[in-house]
């Protein structure tokens, strides 16, 4: 699962929807295996579109749980249009591409900060299904 995807997953337990702690899930850095795939191509238009959607605080939090403390605390300001990107903007976007798209969690655990339920990532696929008594 790409690091980007952590920004779109919350706890599946319905009762957790009323809490503010069901997103982002908490990643157990020591138990997460990260793999980088440099073949995944950079797409600046997509990066701009997705960054508009991303909840930056959640990115910073998850990435630091995964062992990288180097992100700025506020979302980088970028032009709306890929044609207007400066060289510096491109460098920022490329770094984010490496971090969010090229890096995936191949094995790992993520926990809801509200109910404590633990979800697993196996073979790069996150499993958000709940056991019958919670569904």
């Amino acid at each position: 699962m790409k690091v980007l995807t952590t920004n779109f997953l919350k706890c599946s337990v319905k009762a957790c929807d009323v809490s503010n702690d069901n997103f982002p899930l908490q990643y157990e850095g020591a138990k997460c295996q990260l793999v980088q795939n440099e073949n995944i191509e950079f797409n600046p238009e997509f990066m701009l579109n997705i960054l508009e959607r991303v909840e930056w605080d959640a990115v910073v939090r998850v990435v630091s749980e995964l062992g990288n403390a180097g992100l700025p605390t506020t979302k980088p300001e970028l032009p709306a249009d890929a044609d207007q990107l400066s060289e510096e903007d491109i460098i920022i976007l490329r770094d984010l591409h490496t971090l969010l798209i090229q890096t995936s969690i191949t094995e790992g655990e993520m926990k809801c900060r509200n109910c404590g339920h633990i979800y697993f990532i196996k073979n790069s696929i996150p499993n958000l299904l709940l056991p019958p008594h919670l569904a």
Partner: peptide, 13 residues
């Protein structure tokens, strides 16, 4: 592409 095992959209922001 991102495959996710889940029951409908219960796990999506």
């Amino acid at each position: 592409l991102e495959p996710v095992q889940s029951d409908l959209t219960t796990g999506l922001r």
